[in-house]
């Protein structure tokens, strides 16, 4: 009948049903299964245990497992929804869902706010912005004098910190990114639209009886 509910479904071993994940995200069942192919590849790159460690995450991003990076660390921590020190498949799908082109703008704004709120105080503070800027400068081997860095932060806070209390709250962040939409560009991965094309082998490992769009 062309309906994946018409027959009994098997589940991924140890993972949530792809149909449930698809029903709670912007992904189709086929896309969840394609993501599982990607997940298996990343989670087996150092230790094949069905979980993504921080080392495996950094290896996937930088192709170098030893490369420490404040931003990759922060993204790993946000993907580690259950705070277990590793990313399981449910975490992976639900976190990547925020980066889907069809995901709600509010979810992207919220994720980006938490990304930059390094110490999770509910505010993006000046010292956090400075810490991230210095990390970026080190990473890119760009050299800027400290007073130039301070000037950039001063200007940013004049624009973003509307009540001028020295920290950016979520409402101020929402207004700031609406005026600077390019800041949310990193929150959308167009690639997620083509995930089944990139990992066609999901068809051979599918646990649903019929693949539906």
């Amino acid at each position: 009948m062309g309906c994946f509910n018409s027959k009994a479904r098997k589940q991924f071993p140890g993972q949530e049903d792809p149909v449930i994940l698809a029903s709670q995200t912007a992904f189709t069942v086929s896309e969840v299964e394609a993501l599982f192919e990607l997940f298996k590849s990343i989670s087996s790159s150092v230790v094949d245990d069905g979980l993504i460690s921080k080392e495996e995450f950094q290896l996937a991003i930088f192709k170098n497992r030893k490369k420490e990076n404040i931003f990759a660390n922060r993204i790993f921590d946000l993907f580690d929804v259950k705070k277990k020190g590793v990313i399981d498949f449910d975490d992976f799908v639900r976190s990547l869902n925020v980066f889907h082109p069809n995901a709600a703008l509010e979810d992207k704004i919220d994720f980006s706010f938490r990304l930059y709120d390094l110490d999770s105080t509910g505010f993006i503070e000046r010292q956090e912005v400075k810490q991230m800027l210095i990390a970026l400068l080190c990473e890119s081997e760009m050299k800027l004098a400290d007073e130039v860095v301070e000037t950039i932060i001063d200007k940013t806070f004049v624009d973003a910190d509307q009540n001028q209390d020295g920290k950016i709250d979520i409402d101020e962040w929402r207004k700031f990114v609406s005026e600077n939409p390019s800041l949310l560009k990193i929150m959308t991965l167009p690639y997620l639209r083509d995930i089944t094309t990139s990992f066609p082998s999901f068809v051979f490992n599918s646990n649903v009886d019929e693949i539906v769009a």
Binding site: A60, F62, I75
Partner: peptide, 25 residues
């Protein structure tokens, strides 16, 4: 010019924030 950009525009240029690399397996 870095000085013409706001701090978050600069920060968003970090390779650590480029998740597209996750798909390059």
């Amino acid at each position: 010019q870095p000085t013409a950009m706001n701090a978050f525009e600069l920060i968003s240029m970090s390779k650590g924030l480029n998740l597209e690399n996750l798909f390059d397996v």
